[in-house]
Design a protein around this nucleic acid. Structure first.
Length: 104
DNA sequence: CGAGTGACGGACG
DNA sequence: CCGTCCGCCACTC
């Protein structure tokens, strides 16, 4: 029982951090995990986003990996959404965000 | 219970 | 830039 609660807690905190991302703000999986209080657990963030419902109200397009690489299979959609917020994207990578922790 | 997998990351070659 | 290892969590077989 304890385990399930902890896992749910982690998921909840991470989702909250992602929801807090604003326009033009780009952050990495690793930073989200760290901000949520679970450093080094970037895979957990990726898993949560990958299994999240489409109507989960999560700005997934503002999350990229440490190299700035866009989500495999969603580059078109993601780059369009990011560019609409003023984020510079090139060759499937975020070159420069308006806000956020991501730094090339 | 162990191996494999994944929208990850960092160290190495 | 690519591939390999290892570490991390959750989940499937």
């Amino acid at each position: 029982m304890r385990e399930h609660v902890d896992a749910d807690e982690r998921r909840r905190r991470i989702v909250d951090v992602i929801r807090a991302l604003g326009e033009g703000e780009v952050t990495t999986y690793g930073d989200i995990a760290e901000i949520a209080g679970y450093p080094k657990q970037s895979r957990l963030v990726g898993w949560i986003l990958a299994t999240a419902d489409d109507d989960a109200d999560l700005p997934w397009w503002r999350v990229v990996n440490a190299a700035g690489r866009l989500v495999p299979g969603h580059e078109r959609t993601q780059s369009a959404l990011l560019r609409a917020e003023g984020v510079r994207v090139r060759n499937g990578h975020v070159v420069r965000a308006v806000h956020g922790r991501f730094r090339p």
